[in-house]
């Protein structure tokens, strides 16, 4: 494990978390992409020592193939989810001209109506 890789994971995760906190879906998507890359890099950093490609016939210090398989799978999944989210952002934009993530309508109504028995335990 190298310090550079660990630091890169931290930076990606931090920037990703910051972007996910935004209201615009486009930024959230970018943030999720960064978080995804942070996690993938984490798998590689934490899970394997550097070595030759794990193929029969290679020289002795061989990298562990399992983390690489995990990363590949999780990249595929991130790819699918990203394209789905992008299409949702696009759809949201065609419907009302922005891609802001709005509050739940009923929650807003409950918070506005003083007469209703508002649930005090639930932060919205």
């Amino acid at each position: 494990m190298s310090f550079t890789q660990a630091a890169l994971v931290a930076v990606l995760a931090g920037a990703g978390t910051y972007l996910v906190m935004h209201r615009t879906l486009t930024r959230i998507i970018l943030g999720l992409g960064m978080l995804g890359n942070a996690v993938n890099l984490l798998i590689l950093t934490a899970g394997s020592s550097p070595g030759n490609a794990p193929i029969v016939g290679e020289q002795a210090p061989v990298a562990d193939p399992v983390p690489q398989a995990l990363v590949l799978t999780s990249i595929v999944i991130t790819f699918g989810v990203m394209s789905f989210l992008l299409s949702m952002a696009y759809r949201g934009w065609t419907i009302d001209g922005n891609d802001e993530v709005e509050d739940d309508i009923t929650d807003r109504r409950l918070a506005e109506e003083p007469g209703e028995p508002v649930d005090h335990g639930e932060p919205t």
Partner: peptide, 20 residues
């Protein structure tokens, strides 16, 4: 197929928006 489907979907949605 998946990549083409994503591409086609966006192209079609684009056309729809342009028409609208």
């Amino acid at each position: 197929g998946v990549v083409m489907a994503v591409l086609v979907a966006f192209v079609e949605a684009d056309d729809e928006v342009a028409r609208a």
